[in-house]
Design a protein around this nucleic acid. Sequence first.
DNA 1: ACTTGCATACATTCTTGTATGTATGTAAAT
DNA 2: ATTTACATACATACAAGAATGTATGCAAGT
Lengths: 205, 205
Amino acid sequence: MVRKTKENAELTRQRLIQAARQVFLARGVSRTTMEHIASQAGVTRGAVYWHFNNKIDLFQAMREQVFLPLIDRMDDTLLNEGAEDPLSCIENFLCGTIQVLTDSIETREIYEIMMIKCEYVEEFATVLQQILSNCSGILQKLLLVYERAKVQEQLHLSHDAAQLAMDTHLFFIGLLHMWVKDTDGNRFRYQAIELIKAHMKLRQR
Amino acid sequence: MVRKTKENAELTRQRLIQAARQVFLARGVSRTTMEHIASQAGVTRGAVYWHFNNKIDLFQAMREQVFLPLIDRMDDTLLNEGAEDPLSCIENFLCGTIQVLTDSIETREIYEIMMIKCEYVEEFATVLQQILSNCSGILQKLLLVYERAKVQEQLHLSHDAAQLAMDTHLFFIGLLHMWVKDTDGNRFRYQAIELIKAHMKLRQR
DNA sequence: ACTTGCATACATTCTTGTATGTATGTAAAT
DNA sequence: ATTTACATACATACAAGAATGTATGCAAGT
């Protein structure tokens, strides 16, 4: 089996990303070799090195497939100017994220890889910086929406928008971590939506 | 340099754990070899294999030095029956944890290793289960204290103890993650205590 | 004398990157 | 419409370096 057409090559590339995800999840990023990924995708290392320079290149390609959609959805849900109810925007954003995790195996697996199957050292240190940068992006947008809610007098007067935003942000980080790590029991996953609603209810006037 | 006395051997063991922590932090657990740890401690691999069976054995030894004290402090602070004010118990526990992280380099480094320098696969999968087990221990104790607060009418009537406990638990997880990962800016670390106080204030009657 | 606390040596098993081979698609020239 | 030339999409082979576990050696404690 040799050279394919352009479309076939792109398909091989996608299969390599998919294979990488599966192997990363099972063996961890560090212990995964190019050979593992290649054979999982049904090709040889030659194909892998043709499409990607090295492991981190593949990792980034995998990551982008999840993170670009996340940013888009965040902007759509949180920064929707037309929305009448800022607090509902936040609730919808949080619930929507959980919904994506519930629906999409790929997203779920990539989150799991990034949280507990990857060591952020050397070349991967920059990945962590990108993640943190995304985080502060989320925080900023939360802050914006909470300030809007404050203006619309949806919040208790004693509540500070900045502190509420950070509190929700930390809640969200914790929620994602627990949701992802609670793989067997699934006890946690089923109550995630309720937890979000309870969290938001604490803020309502 | 050869055989030492018993005390010297124990000292070597401690130096190995310390060396492991430093190398784990710098290179990640997977990429760390026994040779790295040995030379960092000023001995050869022979010494490492004398004291520990393998890398995960060393990892667990390192981990215990931090987690056993944590459990103790948690019981002391949270389950203190004599305390008049349950909500303050929680606040003190959270702030106390941040204080330990601030004061103890070792604790901080071990948390960082466990969060972003370790892949929980194969032999390390059991470590993750232990961590999750600890988590549910924390949650249970938080729940107990919140129920006490409910009885003492410290809480808003509409608040459910179980949901408050989970909310605080997730907040705490997120807080620890951000605190540990925010290594350079340190912007986050300085406001951690305030965030805890704001979080608790949301609950007070 | 026997055990302890290491150091040294050895054999084996991965991985990696690159280099090279090779057949096919593709576009331009004829 | 062929032929020609080149790039593409991989497969295969090679060299070199880690890393691991174990086995063995050895001097000092007990």
